[in-house]
Amino acid sequence: MKIYRVGSLFAGIGGTCLGFLQAGAKIVWANEIDKNASITYKENFGDSYLQEEDINEVKKTDIPKLDILIGGFPCQAFSIAGYRKGFEDERGNVFYQIINVIDAQKEVYGESPQAIMLENVKNLRSHDKGNTFKVIKEALESRGYTIKAEVLNSMDYGNVPQNRERIYIVGFLDPVQTMNYKFPSPIPLTNLLNKIVNRGSRLKEEIYKEFYYTDKVSFFDKLKEEMTSHETTYQWRRVYVRENKSNVCPTLTANMGTGGHNVPLILDWENNIRKLTPRECLLLQGFPKDYKIPENMANSHLYKQAGNSVSVPVIKRIAENILAILNDRELFNNELYIEDQAGQLAFLPD
């Protein structure tokens, strides 16, 4: 079975890369601009192929040949007028760097990556009144891809107890492969919150001590009054306490690294209050227990990295299905055609 070569844009600390590696692909190139995220990435993947640089400055024709291009890109507004005038009018938008990589692959190697997988916030479809998704779809289609997109929640599709909805865009150059591709089916949530979160109060005197809240916190009395469950998580929302009553963790966000104010809180078995640790946040994203955290890196950076990352098991399941489709084409020599009633190749609906 062929080993497919993957290039990763906006790689962060490697969650997307790890999912594809676990599925059986090979990462041959990755790019990340954040220096602290790059440190964590190199700690776990080595430094042989990560290009730590602003993607706008990367020489795209130097990127090695890719079979699959992946990335979770920042969501920015698009101008339809600017798009119609050409991509040169939208150089500041990082999505177009994805297109530039595709174009460079075609220029240098004679063909674009066979498949793409992009991840973003769930409201990408409605962003800018649907204009953003429209431009993304048109841009990819103009490069020969047909795409499917679906919103998946990590707690339903990754067996991690985090309420995290993200849109995943999968596309292939061969439209038959796109039609045959299926997103993963829901699976039961068996990896419950208290299997990840350690509520042992003994930790208060050990390495977890810095994560505990005391009466020195101005809203401590309000926390003590409202936090009563040992099964769920809470958050302080400026003036009130919010409980996640579904017994999962709320969506981890990058701004957890901004003063730690948005880090979910838990009540330990002796009713002490503390924040989730960076390690627990990584576990709630589905990273393995042995994923390396660089020594002496500030917790603020680690929280940001966890919140910016993806849920690894969801990526793995998506990647497994992508690889299965690519291998089916290789094994069955394009015999998996699906045609509509008129005998024409049936393309995906909008």
Rank of each mutant, 00 (worst) to 15 (best):
N163F: 14
T16E: 07
I116P: 08
I315Q: 04
A149N: 03
T146K: 12
R164Q: 09
Q285K: 13
L69F: 13
E226S: 05
P161Q: 13
S311D: 11
A77R: 13
D268A: 02
G14L: 13
K195W: 14
T146V: 15
A77C: 15
A77D: 15
K289G: 02
Y337F: 11
I318S: 00
I266N: 00
K129A: 10
N123D: 08
R279M: 06
V28K: 02
K129V: 08
N180D: 10
Q285Y: 14
Y181R: 02
Y181M: 03
Q235V: 11
G7C: 08
E205V: 04
N244M: 07
I169K: 07
S218I: 04
N44G: 05
L323G: 03
N123G: 04
Q97C: 13
N272H: 04
P288F: 15
A298K: 00
K304D: 04
Y291A: 01
T253G: 03
G343W: 14
A81L: 11
L276K: 03
A30Q: 09
Y240S: 03
A77L: 14
Q114V: 11
D89Q: 12
N321K: 05
N327L: 10
S142D: 08
E119L: 12
M297H: 03
D215M: 00
K122C: 10
H261N: 01
H230W: 13
E339Q: 10
E57T: 05
D103N: 03
